[in-house]
Nucleic acid binder design. Structure first.
Lengths: 237, 237
DNA sequence: GTGTCCATTTCGAGG
DNA sequence: CCTCGAAGTGGACAC
């Protein structure tokens, strides 16, 4: 990993074109050749970047005399040309760096996550009573021609119910479930009419309204409580 | 902006929980107090981070003796505690740094962009003949109760057509246009039936199929050609 | 503030 | 390799 802090000007052309005027910024070159140009704000998002795979060519410093002949601004110390296979191009004009260090970081052991949608689906599959008494799970990731239904359940009366699980329930999730229900009921893949339930840790009001107008049930899920039901020994009382 | 390269262990808890085992990484603290932890790959995305606004507390180095008494790993040189208003928490255990520099970058003059969806919409508004001969634009960003239709047009026969403009046409865009059409035709906001056209630089096959089953036309747009039509003087022939 | 939608989204999984 | 859906999405803009 190489870190450079210097005055620079950046021009990108690819999916769009973008320009950064001359100013002092941080430039990161990672081991995967990716380049990112950071200002001192905007959290972790760079102002401009090139994603890997890409190649980086550095045109070396020129003498003042040669620069003058070529019409190059004498402030320019280096020119970086970054190219991707897709035709994207990033050009960075660099002044004298205030920092230029290279460090070998090695391979990272990687990030361990807990609490994403997959875990929520897993917990619900193990605790279908969260939907109501007598509910059972027929299958997780039940395949249809247009994609997998998160959970296929049966309610207390034995009716099939397709459950769409989301961390945050928004309109798109309702649309997605609606497409599954339309298909399953049009083709009578499961005989009787299949109902729908939209399950999420939080459901936006507009999504709830849309679901209800389509006869889809809404269930808000408490992840921590569900984890407690799943492993009662973890609870303190 | 402060750049630190050091062995570290990171734990995040907030919208999810995540853990990074002990390894050498880059840590960036920006002027907005945001913190990001980078490995030497994954383009510009950090492994872990805290978005502003947040506060950073640094617990100073302890002596080996004090560390032993407190049960702290003697490799630990500093402990950073980063907290956001939303209750998110990031803890970074740091070893002896290989790099620790602070640079003042000042305020960035900012990024200039060209070629995003707004420009595509603008070009299409100026060149409705891209949809067919005799087409006219009634209004850009035509407001409905559930959001703005990108372009409201009339075709050669004078029929209203709602046009949804996307850079890349995917299923969500078709759903979005469908909601507008459902509403406009249910409430007869414009008298006769309003048709729909889905216009994008590239349309995914599944989006195209969904659009066609709903009677929505698909138009793929060549941005550069359209720019050429708009400013013929820019063309070389 | 909430809601909606764009993004050079990035990223990962699955066919 | 493409396609699709999730993300600690973030950010801008309208209401």
């Amino acid at each position: 990993m190489r870190l450079v802090i210097a005055q620079c000007q950046v021009d990108y052309s690819g999916r769009l074109t973008a320009h950064l005027p001359w100013a002092k910024r941080l430039i990161i070159v990672k081991a995967d050749n990716s380049v990112s140009v950071h200002a001192d704000d905007r959290a972790y998002k760079p102002l401009n970047w090139m994603s890997p795979p890409c190649t980086l060519r550095v045109r070396e410093p020129v003498t003042d005399e040669a620069a003058a002949v070529a019409g190059i601004d004498p402030r320019i110390d280096q020119v970086w040309e970054v190219d991707s296979a897709g035709g994207d191009h990033l050009q960075i004009l660099l002044g004298q760096p205030d920092l230029d260090v290279t460090e070998d970081l090695g391979v990272d052991p990687g990030l361990q996550k807990d609490g994403v949608e997959a875990h929520l689906q897993e917990l619900l599959a193990e605790n279908p009573q969260a939907f109501g008494p007598g509910w059972t799970v027929v299958q997780r990731e039940y395949m249809t021609p247009i994609g997998p239904v998160d959970l296929l359940c049966r309610d207390a009366e034995g009716c099939y119910v397709a459950v769409e699980v989301k961390r945050r329930g928004e309109i798109n999730g309702v649309e997605q479930l609606t497409r599954y229900l339309d298909l399953m009921n049009r083709d009578h893949l499961l005989g009787d009419e299949v109902h729908g339930v939209f399950a999420a840790q939080q459901i936006k009001p507009q999504a709830r309204v849309l679901a209800e107008t389509r006869g889809i049930g809404c269930v808000t899920v408490d992840y921590d409580a569900l984890r407690g039901m799943d492993h009662p020994e973890d609870r303190l009382f």
